[in-house]
């Protein structure tokens, strides 16, 4: 299901969270479609290996150590990527993390702040850092990855789900503000996807995968999903790549839910 035919040749993309999971699959999918990709992650080793995987396949990629909680970090990554390729056409804001699980009533201020910074402010930093370059380049496409938690109940995940709901509003606001400059802004909202984030539900204490537990958790989740299975990171990546490409050139301010039918709100 490669999106090699979506024709992103000559374009540059920046992907956050490119070291693992959906971010990594997105970086690879965008590279398959022909884009030069800046692979950014807080874990330098992992984004390095993502960039290497792309270049080994004949693509173009650069690795960046990026802490998305820092606006200054974003600015310097973007200016370096501009130096190398002269343009930025696509930003995929993927990095995010579930922190401070627990009920709101017992959440400390600093825990909530950390969730807000990681999962919402970071998205604003990214959009701001690329916006000017996209406008002067004649347009671009920003894809903000939100979460299936925004469509339903997500008790004990407030530090994650509340900022992720904010991502939807960020997308709509930016779509209006940048539409006239040819910059499209959309959200991809993944459902239950098999990644290291969901793997937290079935790890042994030593970090190894508890296969039996994984199958049980997957089965429980799958029972609620019309397509009857968890999704794969690559299935999210192909939706991001569609939104990055000109195949979606009249789509802005929208949400594509890659969730196997788990939620289908109007």
């Amino acid at each position: 299901m490669s999106s090699v035919t979506l024709r992103l040749g000559g374009r540059t993309a920046l992907v956050t969270g490119a070291g693992s999971g959906i971010g990594r699959a997105t970086a690879i999918e965008l590279a398959n479609a022909g884009a030069a990709v800046g692979c950014a992650d807080v874990d330098q080793q992992s984004c390095q290996s993502c960039a290497e995987e792309i270049t080994e396949q004949g693509g173009t990629a650069f690795s960046y150590s990026l802490d998305v909680r820092s606006a200054a970090d974003f600015e310097s990554v973007v200016s370096n990527l501009l130096l190398r390729t002269g343009r930025i056409d696509v930003l995929a804001n993927v990095a995010g993390a579930i922190t401070a699980p627990g009920p709101i009533l017992s959440m400390r201020d600093d825990e909530f702040d950390e969730g807000l910074t990681l999962n919402l402010k970071s998205f604003v930093y990214g959009c701001r850092a690329v916006g000017t370059a996209m406008i002067s380049g004649g347009g671009g496409s920003i894809i903000n990855v939100s979460s299936g938690t925004v469509d339903g109940h997500a008790p004990d995940l407030g530090a994650y789900s509340i900022p992720k709901a904010g991502v939807l509003q960020l997308t709509r606001t930016l779509a209006m503000e940048l539409g006239g400059d040819g910059v499209r802004v959309n959200t991809v909202s993944p459902g239950y996807i098999s990644t290291s984030m969901t793997a937290a539900h079935y790890r042994n204490a030593d970090g190894t995968v508890n296969v039996e537990q994984r199958n049980t958790v997957d089965r429980e989740h799958s029972a609620e999903i019309p397509l009857g299975r968890p999704g794969q990171a690559r299935e999210v990546a192909t939706a991001v790549t569609f939104l990055a490409s000109d195949a979606s050139s009249y789509i802005t301010g929208q949400i594509i839910r890659v969730n196997g039918g788990l939620a289908m709100p109007l």
């Binding site: 209006m176 019309p226 397509l227 299935e235 192909t238 969730n259 289908m264």
Partner: peptide, 21 residues
């Protein structure tokens, strides 16, 4: 297409953002 293998039950607006207004 197979780019949307995990997408079902959704409604994608192709409207240049008009539905935001």
């Amino acid at each position: 297409s197979d780019l949307a293998l995990y997408v079902t039950g959704q409604n994608l607006a192709v409207d240049g953002g008009l539905s935001l207004c």
